[in-house]
Design a protein around this nucleic acid. Structure first.
Lengths: 157, 157
DNA sequence: TCGAGATATTTTACTTCTAAAGTAACCGCG
DNA sequence: CGCGGTTACTTTAGAAGTAAAATATCTCGA
């Protein structure tokens, strides 16, 4: 198979159409979550995402690992974590063996805060997705997996 | 009062899982588009979205209509359009019959700029989605329609 | 006609985000 | 060693986003 055979018939118009169909509902949900986090907890979605990534990492994360996971730039993480440290949710300690690096870890308060928010987050999503037929949910789950995988192979190849 | 009674079978854990499966690939693509717009045209994705919404409206849009379509606040649109007007891409004229309102329209330069960007946008998406099997694309297209519809009914009900 | 509320937009103060440039520390090779 | 390139992170300048308050205009009923 030659190069064109690898990407046989991708119609740019169809690609845009599919993209918009994916993008719009995801944006709507994201925006709704963002505003609920703000209203209920006075917290940004970004901060919840950071708490979530750190909660999943028992030994904390380096700044760079965190920016990889959150899909944001290093500079962004610097400010985000500074504010979280100032608010007592996380600690940021230099690594003895590599003084360029910093290990970020949740404090107990941070883990407790996250636990409360995670519960609300799950409930909100259950509510927002309540009217979605079970078959559609299942199909979306598996097809978005395929999409994710195809993005990765596209990126590498 | 009991939220679970209204939505009998929505498992919050499953909802979060589905949400993350939707969110991650969409974020990846969005981020990639954003960085390509910046690199190739020195323009934000938001600006492209605004150009796109305005290009679709032959007679222009009111500020409020634009913020509805872009899913952003009025205050955000004020700044976005100010910069676009300053760059010669759009005009912003008070409505004689309602002096609170402003009609925003693309200039010829705005329409030409959008046309060039839209072509690149479509090509990028075709490239990013090239490895997605046709069946998956079709299924995703129809199921995201269902998702969008279920969000609307959820919102209204 | 007048005032009360609704509506359209802007302003304000702030967080979040980016790209690019800057700083500091590490690593490997001569 | 020591210097050159890489890596980890921060800083900077500015766009993009928010919520909430402010401004200005419209509308409608007494």
């Amino acid at each position: 198979m030659d190069a064109t055979a690898r990407h046989p018939e991708t119609d740019p118009r169809a690609a845009v159409k599919l993209w918009l169909r994916l993008y719009r509902p995801v944006s709507l949900i994201e925006r709704e979550l963002r505003s609920r986090f703000q209203r209920e907890f006075g917290v940004s979605l970004s901060r919840f995402d950071a708490l979530s990534a750190l909660d999943r990492a028992p030994d904390g994360l380096l700044m760079g690992e965190l920016s990889d996971r959150l899909l944001v730039t290093n500079g962004n993480v610097t400010g985000l974590i500074s504010r979280m440290v100032a608010d007592g949710l996380a600690t940021r300690a230099a690594l003895p063996q590599d003084r360029r690096s910093f290990r970020v870890e949740l404090t107990d308060a941070g883990r407790q805060t996250f636990a409360r928010m995670a519960r609300a987050h799950a409930d909100w999503l259950a509510e927002l997705l309540a009217d979605l037929p079970g078959e559609t949910a299942a199909a979306l789950g598996s097809h978005t997996e395929t999409l994710m995988h195809s993005l990765r192979t596209e990126q590498d190849g």
